[in-house]
Structures are given as structure tokens and as C-alpha cells.
Design a protein around this nucleic acid. Structure first.
Lengths: 335, 335
DNA sequence: CTGTTAGCGCTTTCAA
DNA sequence: TTGAAAGCGCTAACAG
């Protein structure tokens, strides 16, 4: 039924080897023959079977990418960067959503290994043992936004501790004293690192306090409940500065505070994290900590391909610095 | 180097056929044997080679999805819906970004065909001839948000003409008379349909006018330039109601109008399209036309699998109705 | 219940 | 410059 090299060869009056050559090593084939074969291909509508190619090659031309949450613009941008980089090498990126679920992540990794991907780029989570095993089995791994003690695994990240410090320092500098950190679960490394940074910034300032409002995930909805719990606090207990572990949460917090009649930034200053495109378009433009998301994806693929090209090359660890983006949501009220 | 069924068989002291059976038809294998084989698999770290499986099966267990713009939350949601549906059947979704570029779309479709995907879900664009050819070659196609004259292609869509009407009727009902449509390129079917709907709504109302501000794409940035051009107009020429062809554009328009000192909705009412999650979180909460994005993805995969299961089943065409979501950006000023 | 074996469609030596 | 033939790793008959 399906057209294969055999059919093309017959139609062009050549052997299958020749057909393969016009496909892969055109220079070895006489122009006239190549022309004839090409016509046959077009006429019959021949489409190469990638499975067969891979089987021979032993490896596919794909890269696996596992993200925590594809609907978070930060990861969408990251994926974008990875795809762009892969595209220039004629590689394709398979994206999988873990939804921060260990099982789904495992399933995705299994599939990727079965596909014999060149390598895998993984954002947070992922069992270190599993990762090590994958590398032993020849599937290269690059970690995004997560460091590891395993010296054989490359990683690319943004300094989350510095980011947390940057955020809280900014709040304190603009006159806030009672800071709340909204985020969670803290089992996510990025979250705990940002919290560490926040704590550190608080520690170096007299008369400032930090309270933690833990969330179960990092969505707008969760942000809204966190915001509601802040609205419900005794005014004397209430923070005057909120640092949300990502922009989605911050947006939710903003919605809840405003509908609770609390003014931003007058009553409470608010800063997010990631600086997604929408941050500048929220009700009150949101201050945030910018991460080079696209570049992260791009660099992750770079690192991966470097190891594919030379498996003996040492693992690399690249860390980018976050930047503070100040907008209205943290404008100082006392000049 | 890599572990194959052969190695597992040797280690377990059985034949390759038996190994294959514990993998695919466990019920045919004696429990004790199966146990032994399983141990060998775990011990050796055997990972099935999907390419080989596919080669035998003739088809892969993947579905291809081509979207216009993965960074648009509307498409992200759509993809999400498709993935969820696919996951329940143990299928994986390969997502490709066309960026509204015909070449990239072609490349993606080629890759999908080479992978022998079960079928492809395509949002806008796509050459009808190419689609027909793909179907002839056995790759099923489902169109999203785009109808076709080809009776053999299934499609799922939201009625864009109705949506356009809904939007403009709402503007007119709340007292606006000089309406501007912001969107483009009009070569995108969704855009032209929404414009048709808008025109129709205008046509049925006395004393209303419609002007078109065409954009080259549908991003926040383009929206901002469109907004700036509106700000630059003579006040007497300026519209008092703007209908943006998607929310990203609307957000850009909002930014430009506000920084140009134009009040929303007092001076100009603004309505977008898609009702992405962020629409309710913009500076002025944005009215929009809601589309069941997730459901679109879900349904598209349903339709695809129906045809995979029974290639002779007739093509289906499902059309959802859009809904009006009213928020502050269009609140009537004159009560 | 288990073993043997013939390919799936392609690439790639090796000869001619 | 082209052809013939040997697999890549797996599954699915078919025998035993």
C-alpha cells in the first residue's frame, strides 16, 4: 500500500541503493539518474519512513523537553528558545508536560528513551537516580533551573537565590517592612531558592519580618486564594509588601487584593517573578524579576548538543543573573 | 552496546519471542517465566526501541499538531486539550509551531508524515492540495478553526462570524457608533471571518461606521502600534469602540491608548477575542469573546481517532458557539 | 507455554 | 557510478 524505496527504485529502473543515495549522498549519483529517481519520488508521492531510518541510525533526530507547566508563559518561552535552536540543526523538539506530577514525568521520560532521543532537557523535578541512569544508558540530560550534585549532568539556570534577594531588597528599599512570601510547594527547588533569597534579604535588614503563605501550585487561581487569605488578615498583621514566587501567582494576588479593597502599591506593594509578557499589562503594571527564558531554552539545547557531539566533554553549568523590572506595583509611596 | 531483547532473552534463559510476549501479551507467558524476564529487564535496564516497534507496526502512536503561535495562550490551551485527550489513549502529541509561516508548516507536516503519525491536527493555513494529498497517503487530517470545501476532511471550529457579530453588537448596544476593527493579516481565515461578522453587525445598525486598522500579526506589540495609530488620529476621526481580533492585540491597544491618555472605557470601549486567562487581569479588565479552546483540542483528537478507527467513517464538522464575556473595558458610561 | 524465524523500510558496505 | 545484500531491534506467525 504505502510507497517505499523499492517502488521508487522499480519506477526509476534503478536499485534501492541508488534511491537511498540520491536521498542521502546525491553527489555519488549521476545527475541524470538522480533526476529520474527524483521524478519517480514526486510522482509516487514517496515519503521516507523515519522509523526505519532511525532503526538503522540507532538514534533519532529529536530532543525531548519536559516542562512543569506548558501554560505558564515562562515555559512557553523556554520551549520556544529550545525549538529555535534545535530547528537550526534540523532537529525537532518533543515537548511533554509534567504538571509537576512525578508519574507523568516518568511516563514522558520513558517515552523519550524509547524514541531514542538525542537527549532530554528537564525542568525541575526528576529523580536524580533516574537521571543518572538515563545518562548511563546513553541519553544525555540537561537540567534547567535546577542544579545537581551529579558532576556528569549539565545544567543551565538563573540564580534563584539572587532573584529572591533582589525582589525583597527592592521591597525593603522602597520602604516596606512586613514582607509576605507567596509560593509553593516548597518542594520545588526554584521556590525554595527564591524563599532562601528572600530570607537572606530580610536577615540583613533591621526591623523587617517575613511570613510565608504557602500555595499548592503556582497558578493564578492559587494566587487568588493566597490573596484572599491576606485580605482576611487583621490589618495589623497584614504585610505591606508581597513577593510572589511567580507572576501567575502575583496576578492572582493582585486580583484578590484589589477586589478586597486593598490598594496596590499604596497599601501593599507587590512583586512577581519571571517577568512574563503580561506582567506589564496587568491592572497595576507588575514589578517582577526578569529571567532570560528564551535564552535558557536556547542554551540548554546548546549544552545538550555539545555533549552529543563529544560525549567525553565535561558537564557544563551555566548560571544567568536575574534582573529587577520595576513597575507601578512597587512604586514607593513615601517619596 | 545498547541492551536489546536478545540480551534480555539470554539473561533470562528464554527466547526473544518470549521476551516480546511478556512485553506485549503477558497472559501468554507462565508467571514464573514472566517474572524471570522482568527481572532481567530491570537488571539490564532494557528500554524498548520504539523505532523498531513502529517499523513493524507500520504506524506510530503519535499525533501531530501544528499551531499558528504556541506562545498565544489560546493555542497553548488548545494543545493542552489535545494532549489530555491523547494521553488517555496512550498517544503522544508532537507539537509544531508554524509561526504563520508556510515553509515552517510544510517542514513540520513533512516530518510528521515521515514519522508516520496517526494523523495531524492543523490550525489555520495549510494548503488544501497538500492536505488532500496527505489524506490520500493515509495521514488523517483534522482542521481546527478552519473549514474547507474538501468533504473528506473533518473539522472543528468556533463560529467566528457569530463571534465578530457578538463583539460589535455588544459595542453598539452599549452606545458606541464609530467602531474600529484591529486585526490582520486578513489572509488568516479567522481574522477575515471575525471582520465579516463585525461588518454584518454594523450593517444592521443605523448610524454606525466601521474602520479597519490592519496589522501584520496578532501580537501585543502589533496591538500597541495599532493603538498608537488610533491615538494619533484626529479626535473627531477617532473610534469610540475598538474590536481587536484577539486578546493579545487588545492588550497592546489598551497599553497604547492608556499611555496616550485615552480612557477605557470612557473614551473608547475595547473588546478582544479568545478570552485568555489574562483578559480578566489586564489594567482595565478586558471584555472578550470566549472560545472553548481546550474543548477544541479535545474534540479535534476525538474526530481524528474516530477516523483512524474507521477510515471509512464520514468526515465530521463540529462548530461551537462563542460567548460574550463582559468586563470593565466595555462598561457603558452613559447609564 | 516457549522457541524459531521471517520480515518491517531503510542505509551502507562491498563488488561489479 | 550502480547493484546486491546484510542487517538495525522488534513483533507475530507458526511449530513444537
Amino acid at each position: 500500500m504505502a510507497i517505499g524505496v523499492r517502488d521508487v527504485a522499480d519506477a526509476a529502473g534503478v536499485s534501492v541503493g541508488t534511491v537511498s543515495n540520491v536521498l542521502n549522498n546525491p553527489s555519488l549519483v549521476a545527475p541524470a539518474t538522480a533526476q529520474r529517481v527524483q521524478s519517480a519520488i514526486d510522482e509516487l508521492g514517496f515519503v521516507r519512513n523515519d522509523a526505519a531510518r532511525q532503526l538503522r541510525a540507532g538514534r533519532s533526530r529529536t530532543i525531548g523537553l519536559v516542562v512543569l507547566e506548558a501554560s505558564n508563559p515562562f515555559f512557553a518561552d523556554l520551549a520556544r528558545g529550545a525549538e529555535e535552536r534545535a530547528y537550526t540543526d534540523g532537529l525537532i523538539v518533543l515537548t511533554a508536560n509534567s504538571d509537576d506530577d512525578a508519574v507523568r514525568e516518568q511516563v514522558s521520560l520513558d517515552m523519550f528513551q524509547q524514541q531514542r532521543v538525542l537527549g532530554v532537557v528537564i525542568s525541575p523535578r526528576a529523580d536524580p537516580v533516574r537521571i543518572q541512569r538515563m545518562q548511563e544508558q546513553g541519553t544525555h540530560v540537561v537540567l534547567v533551573e535546577r542544579t545537581t550534585t551529579d558532576p556528569t549532568v549539565s545544567s543551565v539556570a538563573v540564580d534563584n537565590i539572587a532573584g529572591g534577594q533582589l525582589a525583597v531588597n527592592h521591597l525593603v528599599t522602597t520602604g516596606r517592612r512586613r514582607i509576605a512570601f507567596v509560593g509553593g510547594p516548597t518542594s520545588i527547588r526554584q521556590v525554595s531558592d527564591r524563599l532562601i533569597g528572600a530570607t537572606r534579604a530580610i536577615g540583613s535588614q533591621q526591623g523587617t519580618t517575613l511570613q510565608v503563605v504557602e500555595t499548592t501550585n503556582m497558578t493564578v487561581l492559587e494566587g487568588r486564594s493566597a490573596g484572599e487569605s491576606i485580605v482576611a488578615m487583621e490589618p495589623s498583621e497584614r504585610p505591606d509588601g508581597v513577593f510572589a514566587a511567580n507572576d501567575l501567582l502575583a496576578i492572582g494576588v493582585m486580583q484578590a487584593l484589589r477586589s478586597g479593597g486593598i490598594s496596590i502599591p499604596d497599601d501593599i506593594a507587590l512583586i512577581g517573578y519571571d517577568d512574563i509578557d503580561f506582567a506589564m499589562s496587568t491592572e497595576v503594571p507588575l514589578s517582577s524579576i526578569r529571567q532570560p527564558s528564551r535564552k535558557l531554552g536556547h542554551t540548554a539545547v546548546d549544552l545538550l548538543l555539545a555533549r552529543v557531539a563529544d560525549p567525553d566533554s565535561p558537564a557544563q553549568h551555566i548560571v544567568f543573573d536575574p534582573e529587577l523590572a520595576v513597575r507601578e506595583s512597587t512604586h514607593s509611596t513615601t517619596s
